[in-house]
Nucleic acid binder design. Structure first.
Length: 821
RNA sequence: GCCGGGGUGGCGGAACUGGUAGACGCGCCGGAUUCAAAAUCCGGUGGUGGCAACACCGUGUCGGUUCGACUCCGACCCUCGGUACCA
């Protein structure tokens, strides 16, 4: 039936549809709808210059969900904005001598154009950029609330310091221990910085995960592990000739096997000991030339040195040496650990290396088949019982934990304690391109919050930025101010916020778009939590945890009502290019512009959706785009040819041929599958393939008879509608032609269950689990019936004859397995 | 190092609850159309053996559970993401 495809100009057609959307403000939403609300949000992008295929995937997936929910009759909020502060703008400023603000605004303009070209159904009236004073003003306002509440404090923390550029470096700017521009050996330095007490919410952040049934288990598991709640004992090893050392352990049962104590290189006891020990001082100095990152610390060769100090074992009273170890983190716990080389592999290796004693205090229970040879490796199991532990011998893990904790408590040297791996959130950045921290330092009054009436503290944008030193520190006219409390001359804080601050609440601001009366307004009550949040799996921990934390702080401030910001989460795999993730640091690899210009937005969107299911990472290849465009042109010409025929007659189900019944069954199966894939499974690749299969069937159908035309018409309408979330431009045009109505008025049609009924099913016949034949049977055929027919099949008989049938497994309407011996 | 994923034809992937492995598409091969080509349409396509019917092998590796394993369990290899200052 195929004629040659008419040459449809997909590109011209797309700009026509986009003009229509713009003119009709099709996707702008208000809060007074009677339809149920649905808030769909894809993680907003950093304006790095141009979109890459990772963005295309992210926003297409969000758009598909938004458009599907509209077809389901929801009032859909689908906003977009820009995570506009950040490091790359400063890098660009240095490299190209362009102000960060100018560079950022230019990038936003270009990327907005690309997004419009991709046909995303955003409500553009709600667009925001986090570098707008109108936006960050409320972040500053909120920070001062938290400051007054005591959720914000200052403490000293480590940074990577570039001694040549006189600047703090991000971890990614430190390459092999050297500054990326200066190539200077980076040092660790301590600076006074602002922290927000996320640990105060650790328990709630952990418990809240159990309520998030719409989140992938793997994300919740990662967050649980990140928070890292543990139950243990904090105890002190009293000093002999100086200070004692406090340690935290989750294995107090092994305490009698502690043969030394290891402290971080920056631990006070280490620094003190180094004063009279040049080689120790040298060792500590060497340890300071490691990047602040945990991964780098952990990959270090484990090294240590004795401090010469001794402490007393809290129970045995024996002298225990204190060592400095480069793998002990000052910022975790008390910066010291008790070392039990018999029952901790890392301690075991350290003890072997430095010839420290290894004592076994736990042994496998009698009759256990656990391996235990302290000479070869540490025995780390919690299944054993205590030995060599005096009065505690014979106790298992639980009993020993209790007994030793009680003994320590009795001596006043230790207490049970719940500990978290989670650390407080350091929000200070020694950067220019960020939101100014709204604090004023007064010599008399200390750190004072900027009063509401003086907000926002606007970041000056007319700066010379060279990447050396801090521009804000060098701007006395900005920095010098007066104390809001006493009126004396005072200085502004020159640090800016971590950009995770801005991305922790933007979802809420979209709801109360452009509110001038406050951070959020009553519109946030209508929209509530984000119903579906879409974004890359690389944000599984930091961004999503900070946003959950921020939401709870906003709730406790009376700004939002829900406990969690994101009801459902779709965590996307990476789009890889040559095996690595696409990101701003990967340059402009994967700019979709050329593909948009040659094949159009629908083809790019369809190819992207068809490539892989959302959670999966995959290597991007352009090959699918051309074939998607070809497929869409063919769909178009098929619809056109259909419309050239006579007007359709009404569908009469009672007179359909088997072939037409089959096509109708496939049509309604596709409809049913697509609804499930869009709404529940979120696998849009399988929607595309189901629709392709249906079209293959349409092409095989002889559509000359009136009833055939009616069945084909139904199939074409289903194809156009079902595909419309993915290919909105083509669907818009074809729906108009098929139905005479606008696509945005369309509703998802009901599945006709009667069309789904089958007249016969294929049964697979197995012998001993191997497929030996198939047969057609009526649905519901009995096992006896099927077995008789099966044994009549030559190939089945061949494997059964001369053997004894031992068992039959029957899966109704699917399979019969005959087990013989 | 630690935490969390992933590994299926030449390629992207499908198989949803333990029940036909490879749907759908790309690529490739053959055919139609064409003076010829492009475009388009039709057909074939996991490997090995066989004229064929069909058989054997096959979902990273090794082992286990089961009538039956891509799917469940154990060990390992490779790979990707995160690792608190990239966002």
């Amino acid at each position: 039936m195929e004629e040659q495809a008419t040459d449809v100009d997909l590109l011209a057609s797309e700009s026509e549809v986009q003009e229509y959307w713009q003119k009709n403000r099709t996707f702008e939403v208000t809060e007074n709808s009677t339809r149920p609300k649905f808030y769909c949000l894809a993680m907003f992008p950093y304006p790095s210059g141009q979109l890459h295929m990772g963005h295309v995937r992210n926003f297409t997936l969000g758009d598909v969900i938004a458009r599907f929910q509209r077809l389901q009759g929801k009032n859909v909020l689908h906003p977009i904005g820009w995570d506009a502060f950040g490091l790359p703008a400063e890098n660009a400023a240095i490299k190209r001598n362009i102000a960060p603000a100018t560079w950022t605004r230019q990038n936003i303009d270009y990327m907005r154009g690309q997004m419009k070209r991709l046909g995303f159904s955003f409500d553009w009236s709600r667009e925001l950029a986090t570098c707008d004073p109108e936006y960050y003003r409320w972040e500053q306002w909120f920070f001062t609330r938290m400051f007054k509440k005591g959720l914000v404090y200052k403490k000293s923390a480590w940074v990577n310091w570039d001694p040549v550029d006189q600047t703090v470096l991000a971890n990614e700017q430190v390459i092999d221990g050297r500054g990326w521009r200066s190539n200077a050996l980076v040092e660790r330095r301590q600076l006074e910085q602002w922290f927000v007490k996320i640990t105060a919410y650790a328990e709630e952040l952990l418990a809240g995960l159990d309520t998030l049934s719409g989140w992938p288990e793997k994300i919740k598991l990662m967050q649980r592990n990140w928070i890292g709640r543990s139950e243990g004992v904090e105890m002190t090893f009293p000093g002999i000739d100086g200070e004692g050392v406090t340690v935290y352990t989750t294995r107090p049962d092994t305490l009698m096997g502690a043969t030394y104590v290891a402290v971080a290189p920056q631990h006070p006891i280490a620094l003190d000991a180094a004063r009279n020990d040049a080689s120790l001082a040298q060792f500590i100095e060497e340890c300071s030339h490691v990047k602040v990152a945990e991964a780098d610390m952990a990959k270090l060769e484990k090294r240590g040195m004795p401090t010469g100090r001794m402490v007393r074992h809290p129970l045995s009273g024996e002298s225990v040496p204190v060592w400095v170890a480069n793998f002990v983190l000052m910022e975790y716990g008390s910066g010291a650990v008790m070392s039990v080389p018999g029952h901790d592999q890392r301690d075991w290796e350290f003890a072997k290396k430095y010839d420290l004693p290894i004592v076994q205090v736990v042994a496998p229970k009698a009759g256990s088949d656990e391996r235990c040879d302290i000479a070869q490796e540490a025995y780390v199991s919690k299944e054993g019982v205590l030995v060599n532990s005096g009065e505690f011998d014979g106790l298992d893990f639980g009993a020993a934990f209790d007994a030793i904790a009680t003994a320590l408590s009795g001596k006043g040297l230790g207490e049970r304690q719940v500990n978290y791996r989670l650390r407080d959130w350091g929000v200070s950045r020694q950067r220019y391109w960020g939101c100014p921290i709204p604090i004023i330092h007064c010599e008399k009054c200390g750190d004072v919050a900027v009063p509401d009436k003086d907000l926002p503290v606007v970041l000056p944008t007319d700066v010379e930025f060279e990447g050396v030193g801090s521009p804000l520190r060098n701007m006395p006219e900005w920095r010098n101010t007066t104390c809001p409390e006493c009126g004396a001359p005072a200085l502004r804080e020159t640090d800016t916020f971590d950009t995770f601050m801005e991305s922790s609440w933007y979802y809420a601001r979209f709801e109360s778009s452009h509110a001038e009366s406050g951070m959020l307004d009553e519109r946030s009550r209508y929209w509530g939590a984000v119903d579906h949040y879409v974004g890359g799996e690389e944000h599984a921990i930091l961004h999503l945890l900070y946003a959950r934390f921020f939401h709870k702080m906003m709730r406790d401030e009376g700004l939002v009502e829900s406990d969690e910001p994101f009801v459902n989460l779709l965590s996307l795999g990476m789009v890889l290019k040559d095996g690595v993730k696409m990101s701003k640091s990967a340059g402009d690899a994967g700019d979709p512009q050329f593909l948009l210009d040659t094949h159009g937005a629908d083809a790019v969107r369809m190819a992207m959706m068809f490539s892989a299911p959302p959670e999966q990472s995959f290597e991007w290849s352009e090959h699918g785009v051309e074939s998607a465009a070809r497929w869409l042109r063919r769909l178009w010409s098929t619809v056109e040819q259909h419309l050239e025929g006579p007007d359709p007659v009404g569908l009469d189900r009672s007179v359909l041929t088997d072939e037409l019944r089959e096509l109708r069954r496939l049509t309604h199966e596709t409809l049913s599958k697509a609804e499930d894939d869009y709404g529940r499974r979120l696998t849009f690749n399988t929607v595309v393939s189901a629709v392709m299969s249906l079209m293959n069937q349409v092409h095989k159908t002889d559509a000359s008879a009136p009833q055939a035309r009616a069945v084909v018409r139904e199939a074409l309408e289903v194809v156009v509608l079902v595909l419309s979330p993915i290919t909105p431009h083509v669907s818009h045009q074809l729906w108009q032609r098929l139905t005479g109505d606008a696509l945005e008025n369309a509703a998802w049609p009901p599945v006709d269950d009667s069309a789904l009924a089958r007249t016969s099913v294929e049964i697979v016949i197995q012998v001993n689990g191997k497929v030996r034949g198939r047969l057609e049977a009526s649905p519901g055929a009995s096992q006896e019936e099927l077995e008789a027919q099966a044994l009549a099949l030559e190939n089945v008989a061949r494997f059964v004859d001369g053997k004894t049938v031992r068992k039959r497994i029957h899966v109704p309407d699917k399979l019969l397995n005959i087990v013989v011996s």
